[in-house]
């Protein structure tokens, strides 16, 4: 299947699929982080000026700036399961390429190399790498062996209408069975005209057209999965 997923092979002999995130979503995440860092910076500046005015406050401020510049992403990614604030809000997550959460080593590497990805301005090099790399990794990700993926949300499985199960007129391969089940689970989410059209396309299997064909497909699906009797 061509779906851009990154398949992780586990010692248990199964593959786990994660979806790498592209440049736009990562850009939004970065922008949110930029604002968050600015807010933190101003807040600290304000508090420090109140607490210790003069040179000492300025000195501590520079330490804070240093931490915001270099440590913000690293600390958040390590302690919050691969998410900075922006990644959390945009539903992204950094993982190691073997699917495990990032540790110090990976996070430090990928975030130090941000400097290079940022060149010549606003992630020029990083964007180039994201567009060219098949898993949309920027240079820092490639060197650190990490990948930014969509954080999986628990899926709500659609409820299927209860219909009388029917046997299939002829045997389908597992791939075809999966396509059929995928169709009946998702067909109700598309516009009505498109539903009719899809029903027409299934004519070779059902011998019917439009909505009637779809109903027949529901019955076949119920027969396939062994659903409850109507």
């Amino acid at each position: 299947m061509i779906d851009g997923k990154l398949h992780i092979f586990t010692p248990e002999g199964v593959t786990l699929a994660v979806v790498p995130a592209g440049a736009a979503r990562r850009g939004y995440a970065w922008f949110i982080d930029l604002i968050a860092r600015a807010v933190i910076g101003f807040l600290c500046m304000f508090l420090l000026q109140l607490a210790m005015p003069g040179g000492a406050g300025t000195g501590m401020m520079m330490v804070v700036f240093f931490l915001i510049e270099w440590a913000y992403f690293i600390v958040l990614e390590v302690f919050f399961n691969g998410t900075s604030l922006g990644k959390r809000l945009t539903g992204l997550q950094v993982l190691r390429e073997d699917g495990l959460p990032v540790g110090w080593r990976e996070s430090v590497l990928r975030n130090l190399l941000r400097e290079i990805d940022f060149l010549p301005f606003s992630y020029g090099i990083g964007l180039g790498f994201i567009l060219l790399d098949k898993h949309a990794r920027r240079l820092g990700d490639i060197v650190a062996g990490t990948v930014v993926v969509y954080r999986d949300k628990a899926t709500v499985r659609p409820a299927l209408p209860v219909v009388t199960p029917l046997p299939l007129p002829y045997a389908l391969t597992p791939d075809e069975q999966r396509a059929l089940l995928d169709l009946v689970e998702r067909v109700r989410t598309v516009p009505a005209q498109r539903q009719t059209e899809l029903g027409d396309l299934a004519e070779p299997l059902t011998g019917l057209k439009g909505e009637a064909s779809l109903q027949r497909l529901f019955q076949y699906a119920a027969g396939l999965t062994g659903g409850k009797q109507a």
């Binding site: 699929a17 628990a154 899926t155 499985r157 999966r178 995928d182 689970e185 999965t225």
Partner: peptide, 12 residues
């Protein structure tokens, strides 16, 4: 070839 939503759930 069980339904993709089941496979997705198990995958997650």
């Amino acid at each position: 070839g069980y339904s993709p939503s089941l496979v997705q759930r198990l995958d997650l």
